[in-house]
């Protein structure tokens, strides 16, 4: 190849090489940090190294985990809303909805919003025992819960803006995937009522005794991971109900409804 341009000088090549290595580290370290995260936190060596590049990675939006459909493809999470006017007439809607959000890109953004609410979910708490055992973790719990409540409230306010002078209640719904062996024996529609479950919003201690506190702490660590990674997780929400719910099931008047 006969290149018309002069080759770069050595100082320029050195400078560019340094910048390129720095950028590549900022690309590699976020997913590495995500993968090296365990119950004890992130691997200290990776965490220390990543701390240097975090501002750059986050500023450029390259701080992603790339864990698409991993570690396992899991159930979807939807948001169901009940909108009631002063006469008591109620409209129930579910998000995302292909018939309402079009084109597909718009639908998918709505789907990501409902998944986001699930990702950042933190049960009410923290349990009083945790306050004594690990005050820092308890503080983290409070922050994570406040974040979840703020985002949920924002969704409610958005719906109130669309439907003024009405009461809005929302709840999270989990849409399960049929088990393969059951589906082979008895195929059902993916929209079958039995595959939809409301997600309870109750304090963990209602379900767990003091001996189970480590599980509560683990759930908290999961919520932290959801902040910077686009993973599709099988959310282990301890309080999910096994009671089926149809698309038209009432939202209000139940302990499941989360409203403001």
């Amino acid at each position: 190849m006969k290149a018309a341009m002069k080759p770069l000088s050595r100082p320029k090549r050195l400078l560019l090489s340094g910048l390129l290595i720095g950028h590549l580290l900022a690309v590699v370290l976020p997913p590495l940090s995500f993968q090296t995260r365990g119950p004890l936190g992130t691997s200290p060596s990776i965490a220390s190294l990543f701390a240097w590049f975090e501002p750059y990675s986050q500023g450029l939006y390259i701080d992603r985990g790339y864990a698409f459909f991993a570690p396992n493809p899991g159930p979807s999470h939807l948001v169901q809303a009940a909108i009631t006017n002063s006469d008591g007439e109620r409209l129930e809607i579910m998000f995302p909805d292909r018939t309402q959000q079009w084109p597909r890109l718009s639908y998918h953004r709505h789907f990501m919003l409902t998944e986001f609410l699930e990702e950042i979910y933190q049960p009410p708490g923290p349990p009083p025992e945790l306050q004594k055992l690990d005050p820092a973790e308890a503080q983290y719990w409070l922050g994570a819960r406040a974040r979840y409540e703020r985002v949920r409230q924002s969704y409610i306010e958005h719906l109130r803006h669309i439907y003024p002078d009405r009461t809005v209640q929302v709840r999270r719904i989990e849409h399960l995937i049929p088990e393969i062996l059951e589906f082979q024996q008895r195929p059902i529609e993916l929209t079958d009522d039995s595959l939809y479950r409301p997600m309870l919003d109750v304090p963990v201690l209602l379900e767990l005794d003091a001996e189970n506190l480590p599980i509560a702490k683990e759930a908290s660590a999961d919520a932290r991971g959801g902040e910077s990674a686009d993973r599709k997780i099988q959310t282990d929400v301890p309080a999910s109900s096994s009671a089926p719910v149809s698309g038209s099931a009432p939202v209000s008047g139940s302990a499941l409804g989360e409203s403001r």
Partner: peptide, 27 residues
């Protein structure tokens, strides 16, 4: 990292992950 994170899940090894993917109605 997309591959490594999948490798941590059982369904990508027992082969059921593709079923689970097509079984997600929202996708």
């Amino acid at each position: 990292f997309g591959g490594l994170s999948k490798a941590r899940g059982q369904s990508w090894w027992d082969g059921t992950a593709m079923w689970l993917s097509v079984g997600i109605y929202e996708y």
